[in-house]
Design a protein around this nucleic acid. Structure first.
Lengths: 112, 112
DNA sequence: TTTAAACATTGACATATTTCAATGTTTCGA
DNA sequence: TCGAAACATTGAAATATGTCAATGTTTAAA
């Protein structure tokens, strides 16, 4: 399954969204941008675990990290979510250049 | 991280989308609905592996399976993708009832 | 009834993911 | 300069995921 770069990026995004902690972090940040310490208060996980999750979220480009003195302010990366939406739209869109469009590509055997 | 039922369903959807084989299957089915044997022709995996992936895709409700004689016709489940789109829209939408909206919930210390 | 086609299930294995405690790094304030 | 706050990294362990060969099940055709 050798996929193109864009697809691999999106698979990384889907993996990032495949965890309840990270979904909860996105919910919190959709409400208000905040630093890791504040996020940690609302979650039942250790500091190192949160750091691990934030790395996955920022590397997927769904979340932005901005350093401010000793803290890091995390926020939703709108363009990351925009990319996700357009990828999904395109994924299931009917394409003109479908390689299975020829008549003999079906599964059902001909009855004639 | 105890999440609601809807969120758990969506995490299952994101997991389903987190694999290159399954993305490729969705691409093929977006082009044309087809049975497993036909899907297998376009993929470099074993039959049992495809069966495993199809189970994940159908259980996530992204793909529909319809039995026809000895074959199973797979197709895109539009309502599954619609649910995904609305979940994503809602996930990052600004909510009125944000619990972090009070002024003392920030990370930055006050300077007064 | 026997055979074969189409797909599912099982068991075994390799790899990936998630978690935490412990420790490292950077920055600010005393 | 020293200590503490905020976050990252590492190492170890448990669990989840993806893969295949072998085998099971169902259905239709011979």
């Amino acid at each position: 399954m050798t996929e193109d770069k864009k697809t691999n990026e999106m698979i990384r995004v889907f993996k990032a969204l495949s965890d309840p902690v990270r979904i909860e972090v996105i919910r919190m940040l959709s409400c208000k941008e905040m630093c890791a310490r504040k996020l940690l208060e609302g979650l039942q996980i250790s500091q190192s675990t949160l750091s691990y999750h934030m790395k996955i979220l920022t590397e997927s480009e769904l979340i932005l990290a901005q350093k401010k003195q000793t803290r890091i302010h995390y926020s939703i990366n709108k363009s990351g979510f925009d990319n996700l939406h357009s990828f999904l739209k395109n994924l299931t869109a009917k394409k003109a250049d479908c390689i299975f469009n020829d008549k003999n590509s079906g599964c059902k055997k001909k009855n004639n």
